[in-house]
Protein backbone atom coordinates (compact mmCIF):
# COMPACT_ATOMS: atom_id res chain seq x y z
CA UNK A 1 0.00 0.00 0.00
CA UNK A 2 1.45 3.36 -0.98
CA UNK A 3 1.84 5.81 1.89
CA UNK A 4 -0.20 9.01 1.55
CA UNK A 5 1.96 12.06 0.96
CA UNK A 6 2.50 14.26 3.96
CA UNK A 7 1.06 17.76 3.61
CA UNK A 8 1.59 20.25 6.39
CA UNK A 9 -1.65 21.59 7.92
CA UNK A 10 -0.55 25.10 7.08
CA UNK A 11 -0.13 24.26 3.42
CA UNK A 12 -3.44 22.42 3.36
CA UNK A 13 -5.38 25.40 4.77
CA UNK A 14 -3.64 27.74 2.38
CA UNK A 15 -4.57 25.56 -0.58
CA UNK A 16 -8.16 25.29 0.55
CA UNK A 17 -8.48 29.01 1.08
CA UNK A 18 -7.01 29.73 -2.30
CA UNK A 19 -9.36 27.23 -3.91
CA UNK A 20 -12.41 28.79 -2.24
CA UNK A 21 -11.32 32.33 -3.06
CA UNK A 22 -10.83 31.47 -6.71
CA UNK A 23 -14.33 30.00 -6.88
CA UNK A 24 -15.84 33.09 -5.30
CA UNK A 25 -13.84 35.49 -7.48
CA UNK A 26 -15.38 33.98 -10.60
CA UNK A 27 -18.87 35.04 -9.52
CA UNK A 28 -20.66 38.38 -9.70
CA UNK A 29 -20.93 40.68 -6.71
CA UNK A 30 -23.56 41.77 -4.20
CA UNK A 31 -23.78 44.96 -2.16
CA UNK A 32 -25.84 45.76 0.92
CA UNK A 33 -26.49 49.39 1.84
CA UNK A 34 -28.27 50.88 4.81
CA UNK A 35 -30.77 53.54 3.80
CA UNK A 36 -33.33 55.65 5.60
CA UNK A 37 -36.04 53.01 6.08
CA UNK A 38 -33.95 49.86 6.23
CA UNK A 39 -31.38 47.92 4.28
CA UNK A 40 -31.10 47.54 0.51
CA UNK A 41 -29.56 44.51 -1.21
CA UNK A 42 -28.41 44.73 -4.82
CA UNK A 43 -27.02 41.79 -6.76
CA UNK A 44 -25.85 41.52 -10.30
CA UNK A 45 -27.95 38.57 -11.40
CA UNK A 46 -29.44 38.20 -14.87
CA UNK A 47 -31.69 35.33 -13.78
CA UNK A 48 -35.13 36.16 -12.45
CA UNK A 49 -35.70 32.63 -11.15
CA UNK A 50 -32.49 31.68 -9.39
CA UNK A 51 -32.21 34.08 -6.50
CA UNK A 52 -29.11 35.25 -4.68
CA UNK A 53 -31.10 37.35 -2.23
CA UNK A 54 -33.91 35.86 -0.16
CA UNK A 55 -36.12 36.23 2.85
CA UNK A 56 -35.24 34.30 6.00
CA UNK A 57 -37.61 35.75 8.57
CA UNK A 58 -39.59 38.84 9.52
CA UNK A 59 -36.59 41.18 9.73
CA UNK A 60 -33.84 38.96 8.32
CA UNK A 61 -32.59 38.54 4.78
CA UNK A 62 -29.92 36.35 3.25
CA UNK A 63 -27.59 36.93 0.33
CA UNK A 64 -25.06 34.51 -1.10
CA UNK A 65 -22.33 34.59 -3.72
CA UNK A 66 -20.29 31.76 -5.18
CA UNK A 67 -21.56 28.30 -5.95
CA UNK A 68 -25.34 28.27 -6.23
CA UNK A 69 -26.06 24.82 -4.81
CA UNK A 70 -23.87 25.52 -1.80
CA UNK A 71 -25.39 28.82 -0.75
CA UNK A 72 -28.85 27.52 -1.59
CA UNK A 73 -28.29 24.74 0.96
CA UNK A 74 -27.21 27.33 3.52
CA UNK A 75 -30.24 29.47 2.76
CA UNK A 76 -32.72 26.62 3.29
CA UNK A 77 -30.96 25.63 6.50
CA UNK A 78 -31.34 29.23 7.64
CA UNK A 79 -35.08 29.31 6.90
CA UNK A 80 -35.45 26.09 8.89
CA UNK A 81 -33.45 27.44 11.81
CA UNK A 82 -35.50 30.63 11.90
CA UNK A 83 -38.93 29.02 11.53
CA UNK A 84 -38.17 26.37 14.17
CA UNK A 85 -36.98 28.99 16.61
CA UNK A 86 -39.86 31.33 15.92
CA UNK A 87 -42.38 28.54 16.33
CA UNK A 88 -40.98 27.18 19.57
CA UNK A 89 -40.38 30.60 21.20
CA UNK A 90 -41.80 33.70 19.56
CA UNK A 91 -41.26 35.62 16.35
CA UNK A 92 -39.33 38.31 18.19
CA UNK A 93 -36.76 35.78 19.44
CA UNK A 94 -35.39 35.02 15.99
CA UNK A 95 -32.21 37.05 15.58
CA UNK A 96 -29.72 37.58 12.81
CA UNK A 97 -26.86 37.16 15.25
CA UNK A 98 -27.80 33.58 16.14
CA UNK A 99 -28.22 32.73 12.49
CA UNK A 100 -24.91 34.32 11.51
CA UNK A 101 -23.21 32.31 14.25
CA UNK A 102 -24.78 29.12 12.97
CA UNK A 103 -23.51 29.86 9.45
CA UNK A 104 -20.08 30.65 10.79
CA UNK A 105 -19.96 27.34 12.69
CA UNK A 106 -21.17 25.35 9.71
CA UNK A 107 -18.77 26.95 7.22
CA UNK A 108 -15.88 26.70 9.68
CA UNK A 109 -16.47 22.98 10.21
CA UNK A 110 -16.78 22.32 6.50
CA UNK A 111 -13.60 24.25 5.81
CA UNK A 112 -11.50 22.28 8.31
CA UNK A 113 -13.06 18.84 7.98
CA UNK A 114 -14.18 18.36 4.39
CA UNK A 115 -11.82 17.85 1.48
CA UNK A 116 -13.51 20.57 -0.53
CA UNK A 117 -14.44 23.83 1.21
CA UNK A 118 -17.64 25.69 0.27
CA UNK A 119 -16.95 28.33 -2.38
CA UNK A 120 -19.36 30.83 -0.89
CA UNK A 121 -19.70 34.00 1.10
CA UNK A 122 -22.97 34.97 2.70
CA UNK A 123 -24.54 38.06 4.21
CA UNK A 124 -27.09 37.91 7.01
CA UNK A 125 -28.90 41.22 7.30
CA UNK A 126 -31.28 42.17 10.08
CA UNK A 127 -33.19 45.43 9.91
CA UNK A 128 -33.73 47.31 13.17
CA UNK A 129 -37.23 47.46 14.62
CA UNK A 130 -37.50 51.24 14.84
CA UNK A 131 -35.59 54.33 13.87
CA UNK A 132 -32.62 54.86 16.12
CA UNK A 133 -31.86 51.18 16.69
CA UNK A 134 -29.02 49.75 14.64
CA UNK A 135 -29.32 47.51 11.61
CA UNK A 136 -27.06 44.48 11.65
CA UNK A 137 -25.05 43.20 8.70
CA UNK A 138 -23.01 40.03 9.19
CA UNK A 139 -20.58 38.92 6.53
CA UNK A 140 -19.51 35.27 6.75
CA UNK A 141 -16.62 33.95 4.67
CA UNK A 142 -15.94 30.48 3.25
CA UNK A 143 -13.83 29.49 6.27
CA UNK A 144 -16.33 30.60 8.88
CA UNK A 145 -14.74 34.00 9.53
CA UNK A 146 -17.46 36.38 10.60
CA UNK A 147 -17.46 40.17 10.53
CA UNK A 148 -20.16 42.64 11.37
CA UNK A 149 -20.27 45.51 8.96
CA UNK A 150 -21.74 48.99 9.19
CA UNK A 151 -23.42 51.16 6.60
CA UNK A 152 -22.48 48.97 3.67
CA UNK A 153 -21.04 45.58 2.75
CA UNK A 154 -19.84 43.99 -0.46
CA UNK A 155 -18.90 40.47 -1.44
CA UNK A 156 -18.16 38.48 -4.58
CA UNK A 157 -15.60 38.72 -7.36
CA UNK A 158 -14.89 42.47 -7.21
CA UNK A 159 -15.63 43.03 -3.54
CA UNK A 160 -12.42 44.92 -2.75
CA UNK A 161 -12.85 47.55 -5.47
CA UNK A 162 -16.54 47.94 -4.61
CA UNK A 163 -15.76 48.40 -0.93
CA UNK A 164 -13.19 51.07 -1.78
CA UNK A 165 -15.73 52.85 -3.98
CA UNK A 166 -18.40 52.73 -1.26
CA UNK A 167 -15.96 53.94 1.36
CA UNK A 168 -15.49 57.13 -0.67
CA UNK A 169 -19.09 57.61 -1.76
CA UNK A 170 -21.37 56.30 0.96
CA UNK A 171 -23.05 58.74 3.34
CA UNK A 172 -25.67 58.13 6.00
CA UNK A 173 -29.37 58.88 5.56
CA UNK A 174 -29.71 57.93 1.87
CA UNK A 175 -33.19 57.58 0.40
CA UNK A 176 -34.09 54.28 -1.27
CA UNK A 177 -33.51 55.75 -4.71
CA UNK A 178 -30.16 57.27 -3.80
CA UNK A 179 -29.03 54.04 -2.16
CA UNK A 180 -30.08 52.02 -5.18
CA UNK A 181 -28.27 54.30 -7.61
CA UNK A 182 -25.16 54.22 -5.47
CA UNK A 183 -25.35 50.43 -5.20
CA UNK A 184 -25.63 50.02 -8.96
CA UNK A 185 -22.75 52.43 -9.58
CA UNK A 186 -20.70 50.43 -7.09
CA UNK A 187 -21.39 47.21 -9.00
CA UNK A 188 -20.27 48.90 -12.23
CA UNK A 189 -16.94 50.04 -10.78
CA UNK A 190 -14.95 47.24 -12.33
CA UNK A 191 -16.78 46.97 -15.63
CA UNK A 192 -17.52 49.29 -18.49
CA UNK A 193 -20.94 47.89 -19.31
CA UNK A 194 -23.94 49.70 -17.83
CA UNK A 195 -26.26 47.61 -15.69
CA UNK A 196 -30.00 47.84 -16.37
CA UNK A 197 -32.95 46.47 -14.42
CA UNK A 198 -32.64 43.23 -16.37
CA UNK A 199 -29.19 42.52 -14.93
CA UNK A 200 -30.13 43.20 -11.33
CA UNK A 201 -31.81 41.46 -8.45
CA UNK A 202 -32.90 43.97 -5.82
CA UNK A 203 -34.68 43.53 -2.50
CA UNK A 204 -35.14 45.58 0.66
CA UNK A 205 -35.83 45.01 4.31
CA UNK A 206 -38.22 47.86 4.87
CA UNK A 207 -38.86 48.60 8.54
CA UNK A 208 -41.98 50.61 7.75
CA UNK A 209 -43.74 47.40 6.66
CA UNK A 210 -45.75 45.16 8.97
CA UNK A 211 -44.38 41.82 10.15
CA UNK A 212 -42.58 40.44 7.07
CA UNK A 213 -40.29 43.33 6.08
CA UNK A 214 -38.62 41.65 3.11
CA UNK A 215 -39.77 42.61 -0.33
CA UNK A 216 -38.37 42.26 -3.80
CA UNK A 217 -38.41 45.22 -6.11
CA UNK A 218 -39.90 44.06 -9.43
CA UNK A 219 -38.21 45.09 -12.72
CA UNK A 220 -40.79 47.76 -13.61
CA UNK A 221 -40.45 49.57 -10.26
CA UNK A 222 -36.70 49.10 -10.47
CA UNK A 223 -36.53 50.79 -13.85
CA UNK A 224 -38.41 53.78 -12.53
CA UNK A 225 -36.13 54.06 -9.50
CA UNK A 226 -33.03 53.82 -11.67
CA UNK A 227 -34.20 56.38 -14.20
CA UNK A 228 -35.50 58.73 -11.53
CA UNK A 229 -32.72 61.29 -11.46
CA UNK A 230 -31.45 61.09 -15.01
Amino acid sequence: MPLPYYVSPEQMMKDKAEYARKGIARGKSIVALEYLDGVLLVAENPSTLLHKISEIYDRIAFAGVGKYNEFENLRVAGVRHADLKGYSYSRGDVTGKALANAYSQALGNIFTQDIKPFEVEVLVVEVAEANGAKNEIFHILYDGTIEDEHNYAAMGGQADEIRRFLKDNYREGLSLQEALQLGVRALMVTQNKALTERDLEVAVLDRTKERRRFRRIPPEALRQLLEGSK
Binding site: S54, V79, R80, D83, Y87, R212
Partner: peptide, 10 residues
Protein backbone atom coordinates in the same frame (compact mmCIF):
# COMPACT_ATOMS: atom_id res chain seq x y z
CA UNK B 1 -49.30 29.89 9.38
CA UNK B 2 -45.72 28.73 9.80
CA UNK B 3 -46.25 25.86 7.38
CA UNK B 4 -47.55 28.12 4.63
CA UNK B 5 -44.84 30.74 5.17
CA UNK B 6 -42.09 28.11 5.37
CA UNK B 7 -43.18 26.59 2.08
CA UNK B 8 -43.25 29.99 0.43
CA UNK B 9 -39.76 30.88 1.63
CA UNK B 10 -38.13 27.54 0.83
Amino acid sequence: QTEVEHYEKV
